[in-house]
Every structure is written in structure tokens, then in C-alpha cells.
């Protein structure tokens, strides 16, 4: 029998990042799983939290590096030239 108190929405959402990163101790994680099995609102919060991360990535074109503009390279080299 677990001696730990049941998890409520506040605790679930406060430690959601640790739950998703699998950084909670096994016993506590089971309590979080138990809360999700009963709480539709937290299930939706978790789904939309994960979607937020995906959207942030998709909206900012994380991927190929930009080309370094030649005029910027030249301006930097010029600014650091010994006078």
C-alpha cells in the first residue's frame, strides 16, 4: 500500500514537465497515472501542453541553419580589425 497522498490537478500540472520527462520516482509516477485515469481536464491539459511545444517548434522553423550574410561577416571583420 502506498503511503503517499493522492495527486490533485494542482500537483499534476505543477509537476507535469517532470512527469513528461520521466523524472518522477516510480511510486509518484503511478499516482500521476492514477490521476490521469480519472481526470479528463488534466488529460486535455497534458495533450495541449505537448501540442504547445510542437507548435512553438513548427512556427519558428527549427531546422536548417541560415546562411551567414556576407555583408554581416565583412562588417564584423571590419569592426574587429586592428586600428
Amino acid at each position: 500500500m502506498s503511503a503517499m497522498a493522492p495527486v490533485d490537478c494542482r500537483e499534476m500540472i505543477t509537476f507535469l514537465a517532470d512527469y513528461l520527462a520521466n523524472e518522477l520516482p516510480a511510486e509518484r509516477r503511478r499516482l500521476f497515472d492514477g490521476h490521469l485515469a480519472l481526470c479528463d481536464s488534466c488529460v486535455e491539459y497534458l495533450a495541449t501542453y505537448e501540442e504547445t511545444i510542437r507548435m512553438a517548434r513548427a512556427a519558428t522553423d527549427a531546422g536548417d541553419l541560415p546562411a551567414m550574410p556576407e555583408e554581416l561577416v565583412n562588417a564584423i571583420l571590419e569592426a574587429t580589425k586592428p586600428r
Binding site: D8, R10, D40, C42, E44, A47, E51, A58
Partner: peptide, 19 residues
Amino acid sequence: DGHQVESSVAWNESADTMI
């Protein structure tokens, strides 16, 4: 009592539709 003030609901948009 620890419940959310406003219940969370599903979204109709996703990163896939956003593209």
C-alpha cells in the same frame, strides 16, 4: 480543493494543421 478553475478542453488545431 486543487481542481483547475477552468477545465481544459481539446484543441481543434495542431502543429500539423499549422504548417
